[in-house]
């Protein structure tokens, strides 16, 4: 069988799991300020893990695509350390703060330039704006069969088989490749990467290709910014917490049981 080619779209974002105290809102500039390191959006790590599992004993090539005004290759090199074969950065001033549709159209153009592929994987939703659209938009733009919320992906005779989450459980679906699949966390966490491997990839001389819009995108005037009209902090969720003290767990448990009794 010929080499299986998978494209994984991965977005770099400020750590979405940063403690609340490190996040603030600049209403004036309409920006969310996160005082935390950049990471790969969690569901995109799941997508990469799915790709690595699918290709475990197969002749394959996994390409990771990441797009932004500026993408940090130190953050994205993690994908190579985990086992991806190629990383391509799509960087341009014009790619700043785009809306989901425009992000998808940039990714679609890059994928067309790459040309040959069997599967495109995205996360179900990026952890910065929680939009949850780019995957399916991309699938439509590339006119691919689209499958969302994958918990398990396998390949069989040129078809992709997916266990897709549905309200009642899951549905096993099948589509002819090339196809697009959005990945959910049930596929499993990105595999462990040893420190040595990580360091080697960081220090390595390997150069990471970066394409700017002239390289592949012909219609930048079609790119729209996210239409943010207003940005504010959420209402305060804090409550006055009464800590149930006690010299022993037994004593604490007694107080807690009394709380339950009062709530009955």
């Amino acid at each position: 069988m010929k080499e299986l080619r998978i494209i994984v779209c991965a977005k770099e974002i400020p750590d979405p799991e940063a403690p609340l105290s490190d996040v603030s809102v600049d209403a004036e500039k309409m920006e969310v300020i996160v005082d935390a390191p950049q990471v790969i959006s969690p569901f995109d790590e799941n997508a990469l893990e799915a790709a690595l599992r699918i290709t475990e004993d197969m002749d394959s090539k996994i390409t990771v695509l990441s797009m932004g005004k500026k993408v940090s290759d130190t953050v994205l090199r993690k994908t190579l350390a985990a086992g991806a074969d190629e990383l391509i950065l799509l960087e341009d001033e014009a790619f700043e703060k785009l809306d989901s549709h425009s992000i998808a159209s940039v990714l679609a153009e890059a994928i067309k330039k790459i040309g040959e592929y069997d599967l495109v994987l995205t996360g179900r939703q990026a952890g910065d704006w929680d939009s949850g659209q780019v995957g399916l938009l991309l699938g439509e733009m590339l006119a691919l069969p689209c499958i969302s919320l994958a918990r398990e992906i396998t390949i069989e005779d040129g078809n992709v088989m997916v266990k897709k989450s549905i309200p009642e459980g899951y549905e096993l679906v099948k589509a002819r490749m090339p196809a697009l699949v959005t990945v959910s966390n049930e596929v499993g966490e990105l595999r462990y990467i040893s420190r040595t491997k990580m360091l080697k990839m960081m220090r390595g001389a390997r150069s990471i290709p970066s394409w700017n819009r002239e390289d592949f995108f012909s219609a930048p005037e079609e790119l729209l910014k996210m239409g943010i009209f207003e940005l504010s902090s959420p209402p305060d969720m804090g409550r006055d917490c009464q800590i149930l003290e006690g010299a022993t767990p037994d004593e604490q448990a007694g107080k807690l049981a009394a709380v339950f009794k009062a709530l009955r």
Binding site: R239, C241, I243, A257
Partner: peptide
Amino acid sequence: CNMFKVADYGVVEDFEEIIPALIKKLEEL
């Protein structure tokens, strides 16, 4: 931990200590 900021009641303890004790107390009550 942040959960205490949004909670009405909190117990700061290892759950393995609290839960069995709590189950017993609930049964007594």
